[in-house]
Simulated scan of single mutants.
Amino acid sequence: MYTRVFVYGSLRQYQSNHGLMETAVYRGTCQLPGFAMYDLGPYPAALRQETADVVVHGEVYDVDAKTFRELDMLEGLGEEYCRERVLTPYGEAWIYLYLQPLGRSPLIPEGDWVVWAEQQNR
């Protein structure tokens, strides 16, 4: 049995936490409209923003139960992030959305963490 997830930050290919996805099955990339992304420093935060003309770029994976539990732990489920179902071209998937105040975290206008991180020399 698998669970489908949409990842947009440090879990994407070539990013710092992608190693957690070693047993995951990659489905492909997509953009989700109605979400905005913010720079928290070492990783991004996504928030639902239905009224804004924004998108979040990411990757869709099928993960096993062990990996899904590890992702919940990494994301601080219930404290730092919550999970919400979204529709992707690959079917429904879970996305992790940020729960904490953003403070002065800058908006990532293009909604693509990988491109943003490269521009910031991270």
Rank of each mutant, 00 (worst) to 15 (best):
I108N: 00
G58H: 14
T67A: 14
D112V: 06
Y96Q: 09
A46G: 11
R12D: 11
L97V: 09
L20I: 14
F6S: 08
A46Y: 07
Y26M: 08
E75I: 08
S105G: 04
R85L: 03
Q15M: 13
Q49L: 09
D39T: 13
I95N: 00
T88Q: 08
F35K: 05
P33D: 13
R4C: 08
V7K: 09
A93Y: 13
V115T: 08
E84I: 03
E118N: 09
L11H: 03
R83T: 06
Y61H: 13
T51M: 15
G34K: 02
S105V: 03
G76H: 11
L11D: 03
V114G: 03
R4G: 12
R83E: 02
K66G: 11
Y38T: 07
Q120L: 11
E110K: 01
Y96S: 09
L40S: 05
A46S: 11
L74D: 00
A36E: 15
Q119V: 08
L99M: 14
Y81K: 04
W94L: 10
G111H: 03
L97G: 01
L102P: 01
M73Y: 13
A52G: 04
Q31F: 12
D72M: 13
W113H: 02
L102M: 07
A45G: 03
G111P: 06
H57K: 14
E59V: 15
L87P: 01
N121M: 02
Q31R: 15
P109K: 04
G103D: 11
R104E: 10
H18Y: 12
S10P: 01
R85N: 05
Y90S: 05
L71P: 07
T51L: 09
L74A: 01
H57V: 14
G34F: 07
T29V: 11
Q120I: 09
I95P: 00
V54Q: 15
C82I: 07
E118W: 12
V86Y: 07
V7A: 01
L99Q: 14
A65G: 06
L32G: 06
V5A: 01
L97Q: 00
A117I: 03
Y90C: 02
R27V: 03
L107N: 01
Y8I: 04
Y14P: 02
